[in-house]
Nucleic acid binder design. Structure first.
Lengths: 203, 203
DNA sequence: GAGAGTAGTAATCGACTGATAACATGTCAA
DNA sequence: TTGACATGTTATCAGTCGATTACTACTCTC
């Protein structure tokens, strides 16, 4: 049995396979949006057949809901890990925690995408709940004031925009992109750019 | 010839019909995203047949590009009208100008949607150009510093999120939503809510 | 070692969608 | 008024996608 075969070996335990599919789905949904993604693309990214994806999650909608619930939880978890330490540096640490999630494919884009689906009856509810959880964490656990929370979230949304637009590819070539990136990622532009393969499709 | 017939009367001049379709398309694309919208929905919203929409604009993609170019231009135009007057109040006037665009169905959502389509080869380029135009206007014509521009844009993106999530429906019922809305629309919450029919689909 | 549950695939289908083709009707200049 | 062009429509198609069905193969327990 070769290593490659092990990587996509069949007969994985269902829970593990679920997690593997969720990770793949996050990447694909993040790159191509909820509506723009086919269950077959998710399946191939996860190395399983399309019907299996559907059967494991019921419907494409339920799969997406699992993806964004996992994503919101992941962000909050990452924020929580950034809490300990001096209070003055807390905001910076949490900001760094957020951008560090760029390394996890689709994690941020999928959240951004969910925030434009408020019109969807089911997904909309889940997305609003996720947003609410996020906001409450920042206010209650992180102890931000309403103004601080607004500013922090606002910058986060701007970062999402920069990611969604793939502005990183214009860094250095286009004045606006360069300025925005410098503004969003104060001293981490070089680092961030290594995480974002420019025009590369699947984040 | 009845008035109703006049309203959707045939034989409109092509330029007018184009504009009418663009307006309808903005509303529909704004409510259901680019990928999630069918050319037939746009056609019915505009009161014409689906093939005619396709023939007037070539493809669905070209139609969407026309929609977002029009939307970015509209926003900048609205900002420009807010420039005259004392410099101190400029930022507030521009903010009000932005939220006033909520009255134009789909205008803001369509821009928000375009900003998540950076991965699309053609649309992505147009969206980045629109964003760049916006940024340059704020920096050069409005005279914002880089920090001011970042903050202004960031709040704008947060507003887009609030809109996309349909958070307004939770105002008063849900603490997070109430706080965010109060933070985003300082003294215009009541006014803004009249512009946003809560759970209503087509913004 | 057998059989029952678990993990997975191949085949297929109905519904939808963007686009095209063919055709119809209104308008305007000469 | 006529004919050429502009403004539209109906009918239809080829491709795509989520979901279902029926089947196979592995694995673990008793």
């Amino acid at each position: 049995m070769t290593i490659e075969e092990v990587a996509t070996a069949p007969r994985m335990k269902a829970a593990d396979r679920r997690e593997q599919i969720l990770e793949a789905a996050t990447a694909v949904f993040g790159a191509k949006t909820y509506v723009g993604t086919t269950t077959d693309e998710v399946a191939r990214a996860a190395g399983v057949s399309q019907p299996y994806v559907v059967r494991l999650f019921g419907t494409k909608e339920k799969l997406f809901i699992a993806v964004i619930e996992r994503a919101y939880a992941r962000v909050i978890d990452e924020f929580r890990q950034a809490l300990p330490g001096d209070v003055e540096g807390r905001k910076e640490r949490m900001g760094a925690a957020y951008t560090s999630l760029l390394a996890e494919r689709g994690m941020l884009p999928v959240i951004a995408n969910s925030m434009s689906l408020g019109g969807e009856p089911v997904i909309g509810r889940v997305a609003r709940a996720g947003f609410s959880d996020l906001w409450r964490f920042i206010r209650d656990e992180a102890g931000f004031s309403a103004e601080e929370a607004r500013e922090f979230m606002a910058i986060g949304m701007l970062i999402n925009t920069v990611i969604g637009l793939r502005l990183t590819g214009d860094y250095g070539n286009e004045v606006s992109a360069t300025e925005v990136l410098d503004a969003c990622f104060p001293d981490a532009v070089a680092n961030v750019r290594t995480l974002l393969p420019d025009a590369g499709e699947p984040w």
